[in-house]
């Protein structure tokens, strides 16, 4: 099929960017979105032009490296799908596709569609871990955990830290990301010792990084390729309020 791509080009973080239009013919519907961009880049390299920079790594939907705002949707219009798992069969012949980087003050554009998402890493460094010594591998079920709680912890831990929640939020808020990273420990016994400090430190770092504030619009949940539930935001709010009122 034939496509017209409107892609954001920006040389470096300081210069102003702009959209550049590329016609692309012979796109196979079996290609993933990133493979389609690979084809575009091959043709650009053949013509001696600079290829479009975009983030990618595992290309199997588990690493959180790929991003891209595609036609106004983070990771494209398909729910619960990362850009690398989005296939061209979901587009039509003749489509015009707009491709932009995540837009947030906390995610400065490095080049073209690549943004610096290390703000999320700094939030993790502020408290997204358990610092007690856990020793060797424990026996299975040595520490009893309700199945429901273990499942909820795993649901939160499914977050791959791609930043789609920030990209989708009209306020560029990172609440769903932080809530998932707080929530994965809040449902496990190992997370209890540092529970109050964790929520305060991680949300404190979130505020320092210049993310916006949550207004409960839930586009984050809709954009999340791992379908992290808004319940974790409510749970984090509850934990934060309890920590602030009791400490």
């Amino acid at each position: 099929m034939k496509l017209t791509l409107r892609i954001w080009r920006q040389k470096n973080p300081r210069e102003r960017g702009a959209f550049v239009t590329f016609p692309l013919a012979d796109v196979s519907e079996h290609m993933s979105f990133l493979e389609m961009l690979d084809v575009l880049n091959e043709s650009l390299i053949d013509k001696g032009q600079e290829p479009v920079a975009f983030d990618h790594d595992c290309r199997e939907g588990i690493c959180g490296a790929c991003s891209l705002m595609i036609n106004g949707y983070p990771h494209g219009p398909l729910p619960a799908t990362t850009t690398c798992q989005l296939h061209m069969r979901h587009f039509k012949d003749g489509d015009v596709i707009t491709v932009e980087p995540w837009r947030a003050r906390a995610f400065p554009v490095l080049k073209d569609c690549v943004t610096d998402r290390s703000a999320l890493d700094r939030i993790m460094q502020a408290g997204g871990f358990v610092s007690v010594r856990t020793g060797g591998t424990p026996d299975a079920n040595a520490l009893p955990i309700r199945k429901k709680e273990a499942d909820l912890s795993m649901d939160a831990a499914a977050c791959i830290g791609c930043g789609a929640c920030v990209a989708a939020c009209k306020n560029a808020s990172a609440m769903l990301f932080v809530a998932a990273k707080v929530g994965q420990f809040a449902h496990l016994p190992q997370g209890q010792a540092e529970r109050k400090e964790r929520v305060r430190r991680m949300t404190g770092q979130m505020d320092k990084e210049g993310f916006g504030n949550c207004t409960n619009t839930y586009d984050c949940e809709g954009a999340c390729p791992k379908q992290i539930n808004r319940r974790f935001i409510a749970e984090m709010n509850r934990d934060f309020i309890c920590a602030e009122l009791t400490e």
Partner: peptide, 10 residues
């Protein structure tokens, strides 16, 4: 701002 931005669940 985004050139194109669509609501999802909001």
């Amino acid at each position: 701002a985004y050139a194109v931005k669509r609501p999802i669940l909001s």
